[in-house]
Amino acid sequence: MQQSSRLKKRRISTFLLYCLAILVLLIMVYPFFYTAMSAFKTPEEFVSKPQYALPAGFYLGNIKYVLLESDNPRYFLNSLIILVCVLIPVLLFGSMAAFAICKLKFKGQRLMLSYFLMGLMIPLQVCLIPLYLTFGKLHLTDNMLGVILPQIAFDFPYTIYLFTNFFKFLPNEVLESCVLDGCSPFKMYSVVVVPMAKNVFLTLATMNGIFCWNEFVFAYTFTSSKKLQTVTLGLRDFVGMYGATDWGRTFTTITLTILPTFILYFFLSKYMLAGMTEGAVKG
């Protein structure tokens, strides 16, 4: 008798926990659902119907405008170019440095690691003024390179940290046998280490890729002309121009800019979440 009442109590509490979990889910996800559905509303619907009402039909005028008549496609292209130019050097140079720090023998290895990790504590705002002035002299302001370089540099601390965490546990026996086979460090890195670290590469590509797509401060500070704007800057300007008057187009633009991160995240969320916990629980 007592057993069954305890079981019942347990069921009720589990049920309540699920209700709570669903409530939190609504809070975390509803704003994005609302944004996406608002992209399909006609201008009149925003005025005549309450905000939470679903769109009456699939009105495509907003999407047509944003894709064909606004500058958004260009912003997408810019962001994509920057993304590629940031990711490749960060992953390549970051993994190379981490490999050397973990597996090669030289003086000052620990010092070099602490030097890179120090970057985790540095707020990027400190570097903003000197970078702005230096880039100005080197003609790197209003130049894609001026947005790419700082992102690469500021991605290194975290990237090298996660890579070293992984490389530390690579069995030395494997690497030793490579050396006995007459393998050079270069070949060892590219043929043995990189394939073994595939998951870490994916994790870091996802994380850095999402950070890069969402980047605002460097692009905002170092570029001024419209043709170099990234999606985040473009979104801000677009909303600045139409935001008060045209909600449909605004929500459409927001939806389109977050769509790539959404897709990437849902395919690679496993890696992204792994990177988060790996970095912080041990750190």
Partner: peptide, 20 residues
């Protein structure tokens, strides 16, 4: 996975959504 969604959305987009 779904709770984590706001983390991967850019601050600019989040701000625009909340402004609305």
């Amino acid at each position: 996975t779904l709770y984590y969604v706001p983390v991967v959305i850019s601050s600019v987009a989040i701000c625009q959504i909340f402004e609305k």
